[in-house]
């Protein structure tokens, strides 16, 4: 039996592919790209939320948000480790991010302009991420699937903290309700775009489905998200910024209007509100910390030398 046969058999049997197993180059490349993009998203996602940690309205909200952003750093670490099992280093991946050769979720190129945005990110952005990640728990690459199981547990806490922020606003003053509505107006469409282009235009979907890296298509995931989220929004008393949003009795699904894919592609290609700033901040932190990393390496070498001397 060749490596390729074994690989196909593993996929067919819904078993997991493990790091030392033979795998097609395309499979490896696709996974590296996808896991790295996922890791980068966790890390870049710390910026828009970090923007409000220092201004969180109560001490309790502040520590919850800090803990959440800390989780995201942890998720980034996990995912980079999962990618490293495919024979690529974290430093290489970071370099690809810094030079624009790898992407992160476009959602983080939108600014957080009010405290309600922190609620909307938790509810909508993390909510969308969970829908995607629950499906990825079944992905065919073992280390990625296992990382997803752990990450999903923490993400559901994130989504709840976001919803809890909005719930407090919904029960608050007129100014608070207006703040919430404004945030939903700005975050609703971008969160729907998080699932990627429609299936018909998605270049990676078919092969990824065949390899069982991807288990559910973009459009199906988007629909799951819409169906679970619209009733939650009604409970908050917000209006979704989509005049075409309607419940279809026949299918039992909420139907949405047309997504502005021009906006999606513009942000993906680098022309979102904050693409340049997000990467610049990341590069600044990385370069600003070079002396620290160099010192840590130099010190470790000295300790090794002393030990062997």
């Amino acid at each position: 039996m060749t490596g390729e046969d074994r690989f196909l058999e593993t996929i067919e049997a819904d078993d997991k592919v493990e790091p030392r197993d033979w795998m097609p180059d395309g499979y490896r490349k696709t996974l590296i790209r996808q896991i790295a993009q996922h890791a980068h998203s966790e890390v870049i996602g710390m910026q828009p939320e970090g923007n409000w940690i220092t201004r969180a309205p109560t001490l309790m909200r502040k520590i919850i948000l800090m803990a959440k952003v800390q989780d995201e750093a942890g998720h980034g670490l996990y995912l980079y480790s999962a990618a490293e099992t495919l024979g690529v280093s974290r430093d290489e991946l970071q370099h690809l991010l810094h030079t624009g050769k790898q992407k992160y979720s476009s959602i983080f190129n939108y600014p957080t302009l009010s405290w309600a945005d922190i609620g909307a990110i938790g509810w909508l952005v993390d909510g969308a991420a969970i829908v995607n990640q629950i499906a990825l728990q079944q992905t065919s690459y073992g280390p990625y699937a296992r990382a997803m199981v752990k990450i999903c547990k923490e993400e559901s806490f994130h989504a709840r903290q976001g919803y809890s922020i909005l719930l407090a606003l919904s029960r608050g003053s007129e100014a608070q309700r207006a703040m919430m509505q404004d945030a939903v107006d700005r975050w609703w469409w971008p969160s729907l775009m998080m699932f990627g282009p429609p299936d018909a235009e998605s270049t990676h979907t078919e092969q990824s489905m065949e390899w069982k890296i991807k288990r559910v298509t973009n459009d199906e995931l988007r629909q799951r998200f819409v169906d679970q989220t619209v009733p939650q929004g009604q409970h908050l008393g917000v209006t979704f910024p989509d005049p075409d949003l309607a419940y279809d009795e026949g299918t039992g699904h909420w139907m949405i209007g047309d997504i502005d894919w021009d906006e999606f592609w513009a942000v993906v290609k680098g022309d979102g509100r904050l693409n340049r700033e997000r990467i610049a901040a990341k590069v600044r932190a990385w370069e600003g910390g070079a002396w620290v990393r160099e010192a840590a390496t130099a010190y470790a070498e000295k300790v090794n030398l002393r030990r062997t001397a």
Partner: peptide, 29 residues
């Protein structure tokens, strides 16, 4: 410490600094 989020030389330090900050604010509470 909370000002420093996403500015550390390594992800591990982002985690550590946030953790220490959380402890201090928790004690203050």
């Amino acid at each position: 410490l909370s000002e420093y989020i996403a500015s550390a030389p390594e992800l591990e330090e982002d985690l550590a600094v946030a953790n220490i900050g959380l402890d201090h604010i928790g004690v203050a509470q």
